[in-house]
């Protein structure tokens, strides 16, 4: 596990947790990203808020780029030990499945994985075990075909 970065992972997770807490405490809504995307596209209620949340997801990394100098020492960035796909058919298939699958099951890594498990929801726990397990099988199969090295 030479790419294992537990400290930056835990710190990042705590920051994500704080965002979910603040969002729930103030708006009464759970920050599941796939749900926010669906609502931003299809629902009139809270549309501007939903779009602003997504805009925040785009602005955050820019902010980080301007302030990372002091943080850079504490946080080692992950190296590229695995090649990522640049095949358009794979990316399009992946995108369609992620969009369709998360909304069919009612949540993604944040909605089921963090908010759901945090609420002690059994169905979210099952959903998380299924999507993590299936994703691991998918990656293992792709590695057999030499797509991920």
């Amino acid at each position: 596990m030479n790419n294992f970065t537990p400290y930056s992972a835990l710190l990042g997770g705590i920051i994500i947790g704080l965002s979910i807490v603040l969002y729930f405490y103030t708006t009464g809504r759970l920050a599941g990203i796939s749900g926010i995307v669906e609502n931003a596209i299809t629902k009139k209620a809270n549309r501007i808020s939903n779009i602003l949340f997504l805009l925040g997801l785009v602005l955050g990394p820019l902010l980080y780029c301007y302030t990372k100098e002091p943080l850079a020492i504490a946080l080692t960035l992950p190296d590229h030990s695995f090649t990522i796909t640049n095949s358009y058919p794979l990316v399009i298939t992946g995108g369609l499945l992620v969009g369709f699958g998360t909304r069919l099951s009612g949540g993604c890594t944040s909605g089921h994985g963090i908010c759901g498990i945090g609420r002690l929801s059994i169905s979210s726990l099952i959903a998380t075990v299924v999507f993590v397990g299936v994703a691991m099988i998918t990656v293992t199969i792709l590695q057999q075909f030499g797509i991920y090295l």
């Binding site: 705590i14 994500i16 969002y23 997801l57």
Partner: peptide
């Protein structure tokens, strides 16, 4: 604000 904080967590954790 929550979107910004959330994404900082994603970026920090890689």
């Amino acid at each position: 604000l929550c979107g910004v904080i959330f994404s900082l967590g994603l970026v920090v954790s890689g």
